[in-house]
Design a protein around this nucleic acid. Structure first.
Lengths: 188, 188
DNA sequence: AAGCAACTTGACTGATCGTTCCAAAACAGC
DNA sequence: GCTGTTTTGGAACGATCAGTCAAGTTGCTT
């Protein structure tokens, strides 16, 4: 064994995530990353490979954190419908930090298989949790039986993206809340 | 008088718009623009100023075209609700061309006053047209009177952004149609 | 205590960035 | 056909890009 790292990999990753969320991939320079992560140039390349692999790592971590947060909110309420509401509230409450998933979709579309793979994996776990809770809410009579659970998941995904873009465009909290309310109302 | 331009400014602008839509501002290089616009380096700088002003010009043009398209769809039907449906269908039908408004919001947030001004102006004309048609649809009994027209506009904006991001993420046509249906249903 | 493997630091690489300069080519009016 | 203005294309600018190299430093292991 030898000298241990002087920085925490996860903390550095979170710092990098913040920069990528704010400026996108192309808009982020190595200098900006080093400043935010507070590590040396070589440490970055030794630890994370290169800018592109670092970006993938941040997206992977973001999907994990975000997916976990959503599932927690979803399951944190007794009534399934309240769980769905909690998930929407989470998006609305999240002040103005842009979503890395949305921004990477904007920036790259489907041109990068590596990113697609990360998103597909994240989608899988969240979607199954959501479908289960939505069907539960339908059984409770809180969500219309006319809608297919999978379509509702797509609709909620799209709404989340829309709410986040509204926030990034400067919509204030009341307007975001109204968006959340209208989204939830659409399920009835 | 002297030698006239060998290219059409609007056509070149549309070509630039295509590149910016596909790759964003930071992801677009001068070379890519020149290739797409099929003009010389100096012509670009003489005619459009620089990359940033060219981007503003494309965003301005995009907002005009897109706003006009939406208003036309909105007013092209007898029944107000059908007009709203037509507007949504327009977004769903638009194959996979990313929205410059969404991508610029992602990339820059509110950090660029010049862009904000362009969007505010575009929002104004479209919003008034939408509010009018929504209130008409409410009077017809097609849209719930519980909802405020302005909130519905925000909701539709957010939905459009969501649908476009879904498309950019690879959602196929049936899924986009389902999103459009769910969005429209939310207004009832 | 000594040695060594890993981490850190900062100078440096070629490539590419957006932009400008310059001279040649092209067209309008006389 | 000439003159004058504008467009054009290519070469060139400094700045910055992502990434590398080579010392120098640190702390674990024996």
């Amino acid at each position: 064994m030898a000298r241990p790292k002087a920085f925490d990999t996860e903390i550095a990753l979170d710092a990098a995530m913040g920069v990528f969320r704010e400026h996108g991939y192309e808009g982020t320079s190595a200098e900006m990353l080093l400043d935010a992560m507070k590590i040396g140039r070589q440490s970055l390349y030794d630890t994370f490979g290169d800018k592109w692999r670092l970006y993938q790592a941040t997206l992977r971590r973001y999907c994990q954190l975000e997916g976990h947060g959503h599932v927690t909110a979803l399951r944190g309420q007794d009534r399934a419908f309240d769980g769905i509401r909690a998930m929407i509230d989470r998006v609305v409450a999240d002040p103005r930090s842009p979503c890395l998933g949305v921004s990477s979709a904007c920036e790259f579309g489907q041109t990068k298989p590596e990113l697609d793979a990360i998103k597909v994996a994240a989608d899988h776990v969240l979607r199954t949790a959501m479908v289960a809770r939505i069907q539960e809410a339908q059984a409770d009579g809180d969500v219309s039986p006319d809608l297919q659970a999978n379509e509702i998941v797509d609709f909620l995904y799209a709404s989340f993206a829309g709410i986040r873009i509204a926030a990034r465009s400067g919509a204030d909290h009341p307007r975001l809340e109204a968006l959340g309310r209208t989204t939830l109302r659409a399920l009835r």
